[in-house]
Design a protein around this nucleic acid. Structure first.
Length: 152
DNA sequence: GCCAACGTTGGC
DNA sequence: GCCAACGTTGGC
C-alpha cells in the first residue's frame, strides 16, 4: 500500500463537497509527472491526504481512498471544459484520473504552518520550497506522523 | 496582488 | 537540442 497527497483549491472543490459527493473522479491534472502517478503508480486501496491549497489556511483536511485507477480523463475531450486538450484522443488518452472516496475527516484541518513546525517532517515533498506537484507520494513515516497529529 | 520557482512552448 | 519568453502554481 502506498500513500499519496493530492491538492485541491477549496473554492474549486473542497473536502466538504467531496464528502457530500461520497466519491469523485480526480481529474483535470495537466502535469506529466502527476499524470504518471495517476496512470501508473496509484493502486486501488492506496490512501491519500486531501490537501487544501491556496486556502485560509492551507492544510490537510482528511483522508481519502483510491477506488479505481487508470481512468481516462474525459474532461480533456470536452471543448467546453477548462481542461480541454485537443491532443488527447479517445483511443489514445493523454490524461488520466482516479476515483477516490472520503475515508476520514480530520477533527481539524492540519495547517501547513503546523506541518512546517514538525521537525520530523523535514524533507516531506509538500514542504519543499518551490514544490508544486498536485499529486505526490508521501513516505510512510511522514504519513504516520501526520496521522498521530490528527488524533491529538 | 506579488513573485519565486517551475513547466511548457516555440524560434532558431 | 538550446534557451528565452511566457504561463501557472501557490505561499505569503
Amino acid at each position: 500500500m502506498q500513500y499519496w497527497l493530492i491538492k485541491s483549491e477549496p473554492f474549486k472543490y473542497s473536502w466538504d463537497t467531496f464528502c457530500k459527493d461520497k466519491k469523485t473522479c480526480w481529474d483535470g491534472v495537466r502535469n506529466y509527472q502527476a499524470r504518471n502517478f495517476l496512470r501508473d503508480a496509484m493502486k486501488s486501496g492506496d490512501r491519500v491526504f486531501f490537501y487544501h491549497s491556496n486556502a485560509e489556511p492551507s492544510g490537510i483536511a482528511g483522508i481519502a481512498e483510491i477506488v479505481r485507477t487508470g481512468l481516462p480523463d474525459r474532461s480533456a475531450w470536452d471543448p467546453k471544459s477548462p481542461y480541454f486538450d485537443p491532443d488527447s484522443r479517445e483511443n489514445d488518452p493523454r490524461w488520466f484520473g482516479v476515483e477516490i472516496r472520503p475515508v476520514k475527516k480530520f477533527r481539524e484541518l492540519i495547517a501547513l504552518e503546523k506541518l512546517k513546525s514538525i521537525k520530523s517532517l523535514d524533507g516531506m515533498l509538500l514542504l519543499r520550497k518551490g514544490q508544486r506537484l498536485s499529486v505526490q507520494p508521501v513516505e510512510e513515516s511522514h504519513w504516520k506522523i501526520i496521522l498521530e497529529l490528527s488524533a491529538s
